[in-house]
Design a protein around this nucleic acid. Structure first.
Length: 273
DNA sequence: CTCCAGGGTTTGC
DNA sequence: GCAAACCATGGA
């Protein structure tokens, strides 16, 4: 496992190197600080870091004729597909559209500081990623959603501190997502039971969630590793390297892992484009 | 100042 | 159906 590569691999936005050589990961109200030479990963983090999957074996099964994939996988050795929180992935990847990665991180941290729960550790003060209920409660200043009409909550959210999170035109998408969860129009826990096709359709009901964002949520939260989100970087590779033919479907149930290797490879070899 | 960012929705043909 | 216009705003 290579923590530096995972932090830089574009699948997560909050994990970071807090002091040289020490990396912080956070999910829900769980925080862990790891050194590069970590050895013990226990409890919920076993699942989070996808420890039960044999990535070396997966890399060894890449066909020899796919030289670009071979190179990308070698470069990305140590990357894992994190099993992250569905709500956090929905909000994070809605924010991600047409934003640079530093700008995405900045917006997400502002959202956490405004609506999350403060936690102090030996390294830092950090805020949890707020649930939909926490965002609604703080917006309504504790008066509760009760039998509040959806439209009223939506308008209140549009005027809340969310306005200060640099969300731009995505603000109304975030407000829609909060409303969907609060009013039970989507149940994120029950989505684990859907097959991938149904999962993508359900996710795309959310305003501002299209094909790419839905695929990212399905891959990074619901661990649908057969899905390979196609973004601008992947598109550049498909067109520039693979002659316009998407190479990922042939990788079957590990296509999403290959996508992550390619994404990291493209990001760290920008000069080749 | 200009350009572009891990896209999605709306509009026009 | 498909391509093009439009979207807000931080970084570079």
């Amino acid at each position: 496992m290579d923590l530096r590569k995972i932090v830089d691999s574009g699948q997560c936005f909050r994990p970071a190197e807090v002091v040289p050589g020490i990396y912080r990961f956070i999910t829900g109200d769980n925080i862990i600080y790891l050194k590069e030479d970590n050895s013990v990963i226990e409890g919920i983090w076993q699942d989070y870091f996808d420890m039960d999957r044999d990535y070396a074996k997966i890399r060894s099964q890449i066909p020899e004729n796919d030289e670009y994939m071979q190179a990308a996988a070698k470069c990305g050795e140590g990357i894992r597909i994190l099993r992250q929180d569905p709500w956090e992935m929905i909000i994070s990847f809605i924010i991600s559209q047409r934003k640079s990665i530093p700008a995405i991180r900045s917006s997400i941290e502002m959202l956490c500081e405004s609506f999350g729960e403060m936690m102090t550790t030996e390294y830092e003060t950090i805020y949890t990623f707020p649930s939909a209920a926490m965002i609604a409660d703080k917006t309504l200043k504790g008066s509760g959603t009760g039998n509040l009409p959806r439209e009223t909550l939506f308008e209140a959210l549009m005027e809340s501190k969310l306005k200060d999170c640099k969300l731009g035109y995505r603000l109304r998408y975030i407000c829609d997502a909060v409303c969907r969860v609060i009013y039970g129009e989507i149940d994120l826990d029950s989505l684990y039971n859907l097959d991938s096709e149904e999962l993508l359709l359900k996710l795309k009901e959310i305003n501002g969630v299209g094909d790419k964002v839905a695929n990212c949520i399905a891959l990074f939260a619901y661990s649908r590793c057969e899905l390979a989100p196609v973004d601008t970087w992947i598109k550049k590779v498909i067109d520039g390297v693979y002659g316009g033919i998407n190479p990922f479907p042939q990788y079957g149930d590990v296509a999403g892992i290959m996508q992550q290797y390619i994404f990291y490879y493209a990001l760290t070899h920008k000069e080749e484009f």
